[in-house]
């Protein structure tokens, strides 16, 4: 690459007095002074969360209101800071979702350990754990900062995806072409 030496222009007299620069600077700041603040008044005004935002991990229901998690514990294994603790549980046979293998009896995410990496969401075969919009977690005690199953479902809500994997599987079984 060719080097082009550039002659540095000597400062003009006006520039050496600093005054034109100072005045133009004052003009700029004055413009900003009369402008509306661009900051948000945080607790009252919340920022708009963009799609795909990865906030606090949550558990979700499917549109039929079935909890999607089958407590396979993959997320527990993959979680780098070991924030997730799952106690798997059987589904009683009289339950309408008895055709699903399992469901968690307790599901705890320690938000003091969570690093929001999203590996749990990535690894989940059921798309049951999602990092969602919630971005501010706070509490007065350590216990408060551990999200249990109830709270995780409260935060997560229902996801409007129409996979119905287990229902389809059950329907196929009943139609006679069950397991491969």
């Amino acid at each position: 690459m060719a080097v082009i030496p550039v002659e540095r222009k000597p400062l003009t007299f006006a520039e050496r007095t600093y005054i034109p620069q100072i005045i133009s600077g004052l003009k700029t700041t004055l413009k900003h002074m009369v402008r509306k603040p661009i900051t948000l008044e945080y607790p009252e005004q919340r920022p708009e969360i963009p799609a795909g935002y990865r906030g606090v991990p949550t558990l979700v229901y499917d549109p039929n209101g079935r909890e999607k998690c089958v407590s396979c514990q993959l997320c527990e294994f993959v979680c780098p800071p070991k924030a997730i603790r799952i106690t798997p549980g059987e589904i009683p046979s009289d339950d309408p979702t008895a055709h699903v293998e399992k469901r968690p009896e307790e599901f705890k995410i320690d938000m003091l350990r969570c690093i929001y990496c999203g590996l749990c969401q990535e690894v989940c075969p059921e798309e049951a754990i999602w990092l969602q919009n919630q971005f501010s977690m706070s509490g007065y005690t350590r216990e408060e900062m551990v999200n249990d199953k109830k709270r995780l479902y409260e935060l997560g809500g229902t996801l409007p995806d129409a996979h119905f994997k287990w229902d389809k599987k059950k329907a196929a079984e009943e139609a006679g072409n069950g397991h491969h």
Binding site: T29, H32, M33, R35, K36, P37, I38, T39, E41
Partner: peptide, 10 residues
């Protein structure tokens, strides 16, 4: 306050 206004803050 003036610092804030210059910096677009309240």
């Amino acid at each position: 306050k003036i610092a804030a206004w210059v910096q677009d803050r309240p």
